[in-house]
Simulated scan of single mutants.
Amino acid sequence: MIDPDTNEITSHGKPLIVMKGVSKKYDTPSGTFSVLKNISLEVKCGEFVAVVGKSGSGKSTLINVITGIDSPTSGEVYAASTAIHALNQEELAIWRGQNVGVIFQFFQLLPTLTVAENVMLPMDFCHTYPARERRERAIALLEKVGISEQADKLPSDLSGGQQQRAAIARALANNPPILVADEPTGNLDSQTTDVILELFAGLAKEGKTVIMVTHERDLSRFFTRSILLSDGAILAEKPGVTTYA
């Protein structure tokens, strides 16, 4: 549940994301191609959910529909109490800036801005915090992910793991209830991967809802639940080892 005044999650266990009969189709020269097929899914506050599947299974399309980057051909999508499927592009951009933090495989940090300036950028776009408070908040978030000493460096001066932590701090900038990560550990070694996933698990324990796309199937110890996609449909769901009271 989200407090409308503070944008804070006030309790665990409530469905934050609901998909009802969602399908996504594309028209191609060779005919209609179905990427998602009648997906129904609920994700609760405070869950850390892995979306697993082979390339082409529909993983990225699924999270793009959840975040409003893509629109379903049919079905309904609700996230943070908002009917995502009913919003126009301008409304989606505003909603997404306030409610969703996105973490990419290749970090997507702006190379000419310092790490702190990268973290401040979402606050600058959405005006969620007064200008005088933004750097202080950026430093606090960088401290949260363990790299506050890198605040005034350029991204190129950081290791891959440090850049991914900076990207996570940036995703947290506007205090969104939902974090979405698309293959965030694909370019990281196994030790750094564990550190990043422990960070995600900690954020979920604090109340964030984290959805992560991954090819890996041996990381269930970090997740509250894993969803296996195959050919655009949910093939199986498995509880993870991690659970939060």
Rank of each mutant, 00 (worst) to 15 (best):
L199S: 08
A167M: 08
A233I: 01
K238V: 12
V65R: 00
E91R: 14
A181W: 06
E143V: 02
G53S: 09
I66S: 06
G146Y: 04
I196W: 09
E117F: 01
G161H: 14
S11K: 08
E76I: 08
V100C: 02
A131R: 11
E149R: 03
T61V: 00
G56S: 03
M1G: 05
T10L: 01
L229D: 06
H85Q: 14
I17Y: 03
V115E: 01
T32E: 12
L228G: 08
G160P: 11
M212E: 09
S156I: 09
K37V: 02
P155D: 05
V52W: 00
A140E: 15
M1K: 12
K208E: 08
N118I: 05
P130H: 01
V22D: 10
T114M: 07
T61C: 04
V102G: 04
T32S: 13
I17P: 11
K205A: 15
I39S: 02
H12F: 11
L158F: 04
T128A: 09
R165I: 07
N38K: 03
R221T: 08
Q164K: 05
S60C: 08
G21W: 02
A204M: 14
V241D: 09
L36I: 04
A171I: 12
T192E: 10
G53W: 03
R137D: 13
I9Q: 02
E198L: 11
L36E: 07
G56N: 07
